[in-house]
């Protein structure tokens, strides 16, 4: 069975790009536009990975990570955050909240796939 990845980003174009790349690589992709949306959409679903932006309206990436980690079933779920170079502190904050890793924006499709492979095998 294919692995399911959720991409969370308020920017539709980034989301589309991530989803497109992952789908091409054979993953199933669920898209969400912010943390709240992500939490709603993941209910009752088994995910293999979450790729989330940090800066988002409604619920940002950090909050999302914290919320996901509180769910016993997703305690060990890999979560990748998308950051930019100006967000060094954010990265720390995200790691502390429980993020697995990060991808620095802007990224190329190969980088995205490399990291995905890295954390979910």
């Amino acid at each position: 069975m294919g692995k399911t990845i959720m991409t969370v980003d308020d920017s539709a174009s980034v989301r589309q790009m991530v989803a497109f790349t992952l789908k091409e690589a054979g993953y199933d992709v669920i898209e969400a536009c912010d943390g709240k949306d992500a939490l709603t959409k993941m209910q009752g679903r088994v995910l293999d990975l979450i790729i989330t932006d940090l800066n988002m309206p409604n619920m940002d990436g950090i909050e999302l990570i914290k919320n996901v980690r509180q769910d016993a079933a997703r305690k060990f779920l890999p979560i990748i955050m998308l950051t930019t170079e100006s967000q060094g502190e954010k990265k720390m904050e995200g790691k502390t909240a429980g993020a697995t890793g990060w991808i620095v924006k802007p990224f190329k499709q190969e980088q995205l796939l490399a990291v995905t492979k890295k954390v979910i095998g």
Binding site: F76, L77, P78, G98, T100, G101
Partner: peptide
Amino acid sequence: MTGNNPIL
């Protein structure tokens, strides 16, 4: 706890 898997 951070979703990392040493085996991978």
